[in-house]
C-alpha cells in the first residue's frame, strides 16, 4: 500500500456570490499520483499549474470537487478521524507569512505538540530544545519573535514545527524558493538529513529544477492542472526530452553564455 494516493482528483474554484453570476475556473483535472513511504516526489510545474492547490488538497485544507485522496488507504475527506493531520505536515514558501508574528519561536513549534500530544511542561520544553537544535538553531532562539529572525532561520523554525510530531509525510510547498542560494543549499541539506533520520517522505512542490533534483527520487510534471509527465528515476528525468521538461530546463541560466541552450 502506498503512503499517499490521489485518484482522479479534479478541482474547480467557483466564486459563488449572492445574487450574482457564478464564475468557475478549473485548477486540477483528473490528477492521479502515488507516493511511496520514504521517498521524495518532485512535483514540478510553472506558476499557475495548480501545484499549490494540489498541496492544499493533500493537506486537507481544500476539498476537491471530484476524486479521492487516500492516506495509508484512508480517504482523508471521508474519515471523521483527524489522525492523518498529525502525519501530514507542511512547509510553506514565505516563512514570514507562515508564522504568527505575535508568537515566539517556542510557541510556534509547540503548537502541533500541544494539539497532538500530552507532554508535561518540562518534557515539552525538552522536546522544543531538541527540535530547535535539530534544525541548527539554539535554545536561546526559542524566546525570540519572528521579526528577529532572517528568512532562512524562520524557514528552519517552520521545518522544526513540521517535524515536531514525527509526521510521515511533509509537503514542501516551494519551501526553498524564496531563499538565497546559500540558504537554499543549507535548507536542502537539512531536509535531506531529516529525511534519512526520520524516514520521512516528501512531496516537493517547486518550479526550481535544481532544488527538485537535489532531493527527489521521482518526478511529476504538472501543467495547467494536468499531469503531463512522470519520471520514475532521476536518470529518466535527466534524459527527458518532453517539451514540458525542456521548458523548465531551458529556463535555467547557463553557467556561461556560450553554453546557452537554444530555446524551442
Amino acid at each position: 500500500m502506498s503512503l499517499l494516493q490521489m485518484e482522479h482528483v479534479s478541482h474547480r474554484y467557483g466564486s459563488q456570490r449572492f445574487l450574482s453570476r457564478q464564475t468557475e475556473r478549473t485548477v486540477l483535472q483528473d490528477v492521479s499520483l502515488t507516493l511511496e513511504a520514504g521517498t521524495c516526489l518532485g512535483l514540478l510545474g510553472q506558476s499557475g499549474a495548480g501545484k499549490s492547490t494540489l498541496g492544499r488538497i493533500l493537506l486537507g485544507l481544500e476539498r476537491p470537487t471530484a476524486g479521492r485522496v487516500l492516506f495509508e488507504g484512508q480517504d482523508i475527506y471521508r474519515t471523521t478521524a483527524n489522525d492523518y493531520r498529525q502525519d501530514i505536515q507542511v512547509v510553506f514558501q514565505d516563512s514570514f507569512a507562515a508564522v504568527n508574528p505575535k508568537m515566539t519561536a517556542g510557541q510556534i513549534i509547540a503548537e502541533p505538540l500541544t494539539n497532538f500530544t500530552r507532554l508535561a511542561p518540562d518534557a515539552l520544553q525538552h522536546r522544543l530544545v531538541t527540535l530547535i537544535e535539530q534544525v541548527g538553531l539554539t535554545r536561546a532562539d526559542l524566546a525570540k519573535y519572528p521579526n528577529q529572525f532572517s528568512g532562512g532561520q524562520l524557514q528552519r523554525i517552520c521545518i522544526a514545527r513540521a517535524i515536531a510530531t514525527n509526521p510521515k509525510l511533509i509537503i514542501l510547498d516551494e519551501a526553498v524558493s524564496s531563499l538565497d542560494m546559500v540558504n537554499k543549499a543549507l535548507i536542502l541539506a537539512l531536509l535531506g538529513e531529516l529525511k534519512d533520520k526520520y524516514d520521512l517522505s516528501y512531496l516537493f512542490i517547486t518550479h526550481d529544477l535544481q532544488a527538485a533534483q537535489a532531493l527527489s527520487d521521482r518526478f511529476v510534471i504538472l501543467d495547467q492542472g494536468q499531469i503531463v509527465g512522470e519520471y520514475p528515476t532521476r536518470k529518466a528525468f535527466a534524459d527527458a526530452t518532453d517539451p514540458h521538461v525542456l521548458a523548465i530546463k531551458n529556463a535555467m541560466l547557463a553557467t556561461h553564455p556560450r553554453y546557452r541552450t537554444i530555446r524551442s
Binding site: 507542511v90 510553506f92 494539539n115
Partner: peptide, 13 residues
C-alpha cells in the same frame, strides 16, 4: 489568507 492560519489547521488547531 496568510499561511500561518493554514499551518495552524495542519497542526491540528
Amino acid at each position: 489568507e496568510k499561511n500561518f492560519i493554514a499551518a495552524a489547521r495542519v497542526n491540528g488547531s
